[in-house]
Design a binder for these strands. Sequence first.
RNA 1: GCGGGGCUGGCGGAACUGGCAGACGCGCUGGCCUUAGGAGCCAGUGGCCGCAAGGCCGUGCAGGUUCAAGUCCUGUGCCCCGCACCA
Length: 855
Amino acid sequence: MPQEDKPIPPARLERNNNDERYDPQRIEQKWTERWQSDPSLYAAEAHSTKPKFYVLEMLPYPSGALHMGHVRNYSIGDALARYMWMNGYNVLHPMGWDSFGLPAENAAIKNNTPPKQWTLANIAAMKVQMKRLGFAYDWSCEVTTCLPDYYRWNQWFFLKLYQSGLAYRKKSKVNWCPVCCTVLANEQVVNGNCWRHEDTPVEQRELEQWFLRITKYADELLRDLEKLQGWPEKVRIMQQNWIGRSEGTLVDFDLGGTVGPAGSTITVFTTRVDTIYGATSVQLAPEHPIVADIASRHPDLRAQVDQLIAEQRKAKETGDIGAIEKHGVFTGRYAKNPYNGEAVPVWVANYILMDYGTGAIMSVPAHDERDYEFANKYKLEIRLVILPQSSDPEETMVEPPLPFTTKDGIVVNSGEFSGLSCDDAIKKMTARAEEKGFGKATVTFRIKDWGISRQRYWGTPIPMVYCDKDGVVPVAEKDLPVILPDNVPITLAGGSPLAGVPEFLNTTCPKCGGPARRETDTMDTFVDSSWYFYRYADAHNDKAPFDSATIAYWFPIDQYIGGVEHAILHLIYSRFWTKFMRDMGLVKNDEPVARLFTQGMVIKDGAKMSKNLGNVVSPDEMVARYGADAARLYSLFAAPPDRDLDWQDSGIEGIQRFLGRVYRFFLRNPVKKSRDPEPAEQLVMLSSEARAIQRKLHQTIKRVSHDFQGRWHFNTCIAAIMELVNEIYSAEEAITGGRVPNSLIADAQRNIALLLAPMAPYLAHELWEMTGATSNLLKAPWPKYDPALAAEDEIEIPVQVNGKLRGLVVVPAGATDDQVEQAAIANEKVKAAIAGKQIVKKIVVPKKLVNIVVR
RNA sequence: GCGGGGCUGGCGGAACUGGCAGACGCGCUGGCCUUAGGAGCCAGUGGCCGCAAGGCCGUGCAGGUUCAAGUCCUGUGCCCCGCACCA
């Protein structure tokens, strides 16, 4: 939503009529103007001998205003981009807009504004915010997914998917959100509710839909998770669970005669065929077609089954599926276990899901907890067929107190398979099924094909045509894009708005030229975000989605940064898209993203910021009060980036104080003699105060470099710079008294500007200029430290007696262990602590500590 | 139930490979400067005892390994996130 204009209280410092005040508004405005005058400032180099680095933050939905989560995300990415520039990389750092989607339609209804107008206005507003925050984006390759020059390539990809058999149309039960009035992908259903309307249960509807065959890549998507060592383990595991690969066996149970159109066989799926001699019933999902067949002749059963179906649906909707009490009903029929020829009763049970496996299971109460619970309730036979490996095979447990469910056992009571280990039994029994033709090995996935049809207006039109003569016909490539018409009346009722636009709907068949109708559904917006980051590298290509050679240079993305909420949806779809493009020969990389970083949420008063709770902090207000640098620096300082950040207004004030301290140090100690950076002089004869500053300076460069590169602990980077500034302030008397050479002050100032440059770019640039430097700080080399100058002359060694701190001794940095030990023992407090006791052991950890063990 | 992360002062957080727990910042207390201070500067600030010197206790809890444990091991509690009748 667009930000309403609230009167913003003036920055507190502005009331201070002091020439030394740090005025972020003045400084930041000055640099904004300068940076805007050079649009190529942040542009990636097309031909470069430098190593490349592609750093990317997840593109926002243009809701109208940035929130603090965006600011944090982009502050991290921007710091990294700037750091890599300073380290000599050719950096690609783009930004764009995930700009199709339902909120634009909702806003259209509410404000009577066309979605396009609303969206483009929001983009303009948010771009202003981003520029005000000083993020170094290469706007020349901006991607806006709702514009035809982008979405035409969605359509182009769709045609390619269709040609490859990876896009298909199918009538099926789909998830329908009654508030969005559209279909949702499985990935967009959260606990049975719509992902955007968490209180709205998803309904099931039968509709003709377009699907993308992501399941073709299910195995590879799973396998290649191994390659993604630069991804958080959490995300890899979430994807692994989502894909849900499971190896098992299909086994046919014969019903001994046809019941109806669904046939005379029940095929069950099991991962534990080794337990099949213990199967004492077959359980069907209430929605299983054979249940419908049987029930059609038995009205009583029909009613009971309907109840089970209703119950299951309700449980799914409330998210309680998994906790409902198991119950079921006997169908009156029996099915034959093909291994032992035994006929077992066929039941319908509410804990069997139609959309996993075959919707039918064999029930083995002795070796499955769920089956055990069910069998106990209905007094079904519990037959033991696996014994724990350790126990005596002679010993027969007739009534197991609990089912034994692990594979670590021996098969018993299973005819010729008795005596085998579970794994061997699975192999041999599956082979038997294949040999006899009553079953086979199979792999089941939890992941389903991706339904992309949406009955909404504001999305990419699906480029397909329906002809009475030729059926479903793809739009010719040369006729792309199929333009999304403007001025479409939008309601949230009655299906696809495009169906009500005759100029759009009516077309001619690409094949026969006769009258035909266009597809009126649009694509899921996750299609847009599945490949947008490729377009950045070649954003103005009008012959192809991108040039393959350019992609080969930039990909994979070196660092992708965003919220963990995209761990499944966006990040699995875009992996699928990359694999499809690779198989098309369009890209060479198997994976789009080499390293992924998921930053923590921004919370306030212990809760996620939300309008309902009224704990939202507006970036605009923060920038107006404290400046962009302070807002950015605080979002990096308040917590390490992977953890949740608890926003505290008093914290950002502290950051502003710090920036003011830095600024005043420069202001009070103008050093304009030297021009551009030059190596620090070797300052041999320094006062102790000067030496302390010099040492701290080099130690700080070391620490910041280390924490930045290796760990991304921006909070400790900033803390280190604060320490340096504190050191300088505490030496103020020495500075004003002339005991610190000008050249050292100049050196410190240059380095402080450099160290701050990635995180607080406005002030850093101002300070850089104040030192007299004329080069562009953006690409100034990251500072290096001199180990000799960073070294301490003397070190303080804690001395423990029996592991407890008893004294501190100061020794020269180069002291030998013996000297340190002597100094430790000579210490008065240590003497007192060991007086009258016998020294058992002396431990000297070089440069760290001494521990004297006494008795 | 399974998986991932977390638990350190009044608060946000430091302590990367076992080696001075509490860096840095906020808050608080005191002082300086000032017509004024919601500006700036300086100092103090884990708890308990003590005038002090100093002592004891302290990283969710209980054990253990070690000269030495926030860090390693065993057990356990609580919080957050994800998945969940997946056969």
